[in-house]
Design a protein around this nucleic acid. Sequence first.
DNA 1: AGCATAGGCCAACAAGTGTTGACCTCGGGG
DNA 2: CCCCGAGGTCAACACTTGTTGGCCTATGCT
Lengths: 194, 194
Amino acid sequence: MNESTSPAPARRSDATRRAILEAARERFAADGYERATIRAIAHQAKIDPSMVMRYYGNKEGLFAAAVAIDLKLPDAASLPRGEEGRTLVTHFLDQWERNEVLTALLRVGATNDAGAERMRGIFSDQLLPLARRVCPDPEQAPARAALVSAQLLGLALTRYVLRFPPAVHLHPEEITAWLAPTVQHYLTAPHPGP
Amino acid sequence: MNESTSPAPARRSDATRRAILEAARERFAADGYERATIRAIAHQAKIDPSMVMRYYGNKEGLFAAAVAIDLKLPDAASLPRGEEGRTLVTHFLDQWERNEVLTALLRVGATNDAGAERMRGIFSDQLLPLARRVCPDPEQAPARAALVSAQLLGLALTRYVLRFPPAVHLHPEEITAWLAPTVQHYLTAPHPGP
DNA sequence: AGCATAGGCCAACAAGTGTTGACCTCGGGG
DNA sequence: CCCCGAGGTCAACACTTGTTGGCCTATGCT
């Protein structure tokens, strides 16, 4: 619908490609890397397993294509001062509820090194720069970003992967009310000292 | 060395059984459930794969035996009032650094439902009761315990599973200095309200 | 000493995996 | 109209997995 801006030649098989990617995300998110077999993905996409190979080369390539996504973190400069924690938490929750790519990434990252590497990349490409701009001493940025990611990924883990019942039943507003001050603290509070 | 108190008949194969369990924990912790093959475990334990089946029935049984462990959380009554957060964090860090069972459990829990169920059991059997005794309104205990587990497991995830470099390089004392107030807050602070 | 038995190894099975290549089948441009 | 290539299916490959049963070995009891 927008041929001029996108360099893609708009092949006739685009619908199938999308179906494969969608099924792949769902299976990876539900089963992890090993148990999400190409046959199961192909079955769910209602096509033949060999099509997956034709379009994505091999399973690694399929996974890479399925989790190629941008977090679109808000720019650090545009954040209201003092509200960085709240903004981050709501943004994360929103992304996580909307699409299952992040759940797939987290589940795969726990057992597959390519997945873990992808998570490390997201961390250092997107969260770290933000921390560098927000937190007082840039030298402390990596540690502070690590603390923030531990808090946020910990919530995702217990809520979307391990499915602890109380974590699942928490309302998004309640999560924000609890986590936002913590994240804000990790980003901007003075170092507590050992 | 203590035959009277232990009901185990002290079989001659106990050394082998221990070797299998040790290798199993190491492989599960490093590779997760699927990629930790019985053959790999047997090879590391320097015995035949069929011995694993003989002693533990099947792979599920081996996993169950390998992760049958008690967190040994300190009793809520014995905690110094106001220091529950610090005690919990140091205790968790200590357990996690000491043996790899917890890493195995976390890694497997991300993809295997038996593993996730085991984690949910530990949560509700060990952390929840503690929260019920420590936090002001017992009705809020599940939510508060969930927040605490999100913070603690998030740290374990980024440090021992995903291995974010800044999380790996954090010193235990620094982790405690940052996390103890957070955990204490989640346990005892008044509800922030949505 | 003799032997039952627990400890251990070897080879094989059936099932499921990623991956490949040969083969159909249309749809649109010459 | 024909045909050619992209889209799609089928069957098979080589390999790995969990699991099994038969066989050997040596330990400890009588």
